[in-house]
Design a binder for these strands. Structure first.
Lengths: 236, 236, 236, 236
DNA sequence: ACATAATCGAGACGGTACGTCAGGTCTTTTT
DNA sequence: AAAAAGACCTGACGTACCGTCTCGATTATGT
């Protein structure tokens, strides 16, 4: 059902791809979403603003949302090596990133792990700093529009949602888990605490407020969440 | 040409409204969203499936999402008296519900407060029961499709989101708060606990998992959340 | 093979049809063909020049050539009552014209029989006058462009060709035949002469020169043809 | 950017041309026109069916119709030495054919004069035989499709029409004229007869019937035309 | 009981965007 | 240097829906 028809033109040759066009498409897509919103952003509009043929978009992406996702990944610097892949890669949730590497790594590589959370020793302060930064980012219109658009689209389209989660959300959550694990290993947390759930208790409510707009997103709220959660997993 | 156009789309007479058509439109809208998804549900499709003229929809609702919201409210039994209001009412975030009532109530009227949370005296058990029921509901395809659709739409369209929150989400959250307040007043919770935040700590993570599909939604997860949150606001 | 897919929207209601739009479409089509030629005339261009939605064209005609044919019939005044018919009428070669007429005519109605050839008693002079007029018309750019376009299209598309012949060519040829028959009955022609072939001997070479542009089309040539043909069917 | 562009599409070197490709292109073009018709034959389709790059077609021909014309000339054996010329040669109506030949001919070379009409002494029989053969050829689907396509295209595009006439039609008409001239010189025709017009009286009606599909093309019709025309130019 | 008026089903209309096809140019690699 | 391959920009295709606008044909009162 989701895939309505077979791909018309067969798998294009990615090595011949125009880097110029890709950049222009990303820029146009992000600009349009920020300016007129996701619903009024059209593939045609992106193409024309990017000075690109519509077909050049359809050759490489299956849909408006896929374009925007890649543009957004590029914007946030998460654009991994897989970003080059053709449309078929967008369709399925590809097993794993790079097959070419034979090198052993203890970290499971995952799509482009970002920076890493600060670790000053003061867990509460570190978490608050990160959550406050998140709050600020969600207030920045440069990020807000595409993030809302992609989140909403992912809520409805499981395919896109999976890519969104895999490429953006999960890597971030893993950073939190790792920071918490460090604290736990240092004896600062209850040893049996479920760190994954703890992270979701931080991120879930924040996201909820932002998505639903039930209450203003503030630094104070971020602090409150951290305090609450740490209270729940502090050693007895 | 003859009619000066001013009267064209002007405030229809709600008393003359066809109940038959409204019901048919609700049914068609929900059925279509469940069958083909929100994006492929069209006003034209709803009209034709409901055996109704397109104009009959546009006369009473400003958009597809507004139709679906009312259909959904009707489905969940939240359909308050305001549901009859004309298009202009949908546009703005109306200040408060019914102006026509002069009757005094101690409960602040709010849009159609639902049942109320169980209160067996065992707070944890009550909360778990409710959250588990929520999990089940979110698994029921009859509810899942329109809920996702409306949530996603509300994420992007603040107008619709506000209505969604006001009519559906907030009333529910208030129930939680009230149940917690009862427990606090009974000395079962820390007196200074921020109950609103506590509720969000329950609902936020659950919603997050459901929206993002990061992990399966289970009863066990619901229980874990309750345990965690109560641990955070239990009396010292 | 010719009809690639079923009609998407079912047979529109001709009574609701906008006369304004039809006229505007005819005018735009003829103007464009005259200005930029048939190949560079597009449905999109006709629609936009006519101030009309594309769908309004596709609702009533199956193709650019069908539009142009009707526009041309309208221009030449051959537009019979059948011109109102929907797309399905374009597809098949409809049986016969107008059912609504109750008036008695000795001629079997046929698609809008035009004026009738002059009959001054001098057959040669009459034929020369008519052929010369034809030569002049084929030189008039107002007629030349669409006539060439429709002829060429009819050469390739048998469906359209049939309509072109039935509505335009055959009625004219019948006029010639009738004029010749009158002369034959007056004893001015060989009684066993095949008048149909005689007519084709007049019209065929003229058309040939015009289509192929082998030699200039002149009044002298028209006269020569008449002289030649009459010599062939004059009484012994 | 580096290359000044002037050299991009500039006069290719005909001596390096791939004969293999040309043949393949001709075959593909004729096959496609016969199979799917002219309108649905595309340059892209020809290229891919011929196993040839698109550019190879555009390098040597200016348009689809030009390719088809050359393919058709090749098919009918009329392909003169000029067929090798580059695009610019196609554009204008080139003055004369091949300069490279040193062989002496009394006939002024003209584009590849074909066989010549039979001359058994019986003019009527000879003409009937030839016209009947033409009727048969026009019934052969191998010839019909491209002939119709080229004729129609030539009706609209004067450039192509001129080439078509010059290379195909006129040489044939000249054969008729020559045969008639022989008969006239033998005293079998009126000495002042306009032989060119006589030929057009034979070919015009036949072509007319074929193009317009007004009546079936038969041997009987061919005979009738010959009889009629000869009656018109027989000695008094 | 009836005129009057508005809703209703239907669907044509001017539009916008869709996703596809092909045209003709260009670049890259191969022969 | 021509050729195969095919990406690219352009522009048109024919379709789907949008939201507005008539059209009769029911209702549905409110004097």
């Amino acid at each position: 059902m989701p895939t309505p028809k077979a791909a018309s033109s067969r798998t294009p040759d990615a090595t011949r791809r125009s880097e110029r066009s890709r950049r222009a498409i990303y820029d146009a897509a992000l600009a349009l979403v920020a300016e007129v919103g996701y619903a009024r952003t059209t593939v045609e509009g992106i193409a024309s603003r990017a000075g690109v043929g519509k077909q050049t978009i359809y050759r490489w992406w299956p849909s408006k949302s896929a374009v925007l996702l890649d543009a957004y990944l590029d914007l946030t610097g998460q654009a991994g090596p897989e970003a080059q892949a053709g449309p078929e890669a967008q369709a399925g949730l590809e097993a794993q990133a790079g097959p070419e590497g034979g090198e052993e790594r203890d970290e499971p590589a995952e799509p482009a792990e970002p920076a890493g959370l600060p670790d000053t020793g003061d867990l509460a302060a570190d978490l608050k700093a990160v959550l406050r930064a998140t709050v600020d980012e969600l207030d920045d219109p440069r990020f807000e529009a595409p993030t809302r658009a992609l989140t909403a689209e992912g809520v409805i389209d499981p395919e896109l949602g999976a890519r969104f989660v895999e490429r953006l959300l999960e890597p971030q959550l893993r950073l939190y888990v790792r920071r918490l694990a460090a604290a736990r290993d240092a004896g600062l947390l209850r040893p049996d605490a479920d760190l994954r759930v703890a992270v979701e208790l931080l991120v879930g409510p924040l996201t909820h407020r932002w998505l639903m707009r039930t209450r203003p997103l503030t630094h104070a709220y971020a602090d409150e969440l951290v305090d609450h959660v740490l209270r729940g997993i502090a050693p007895r």
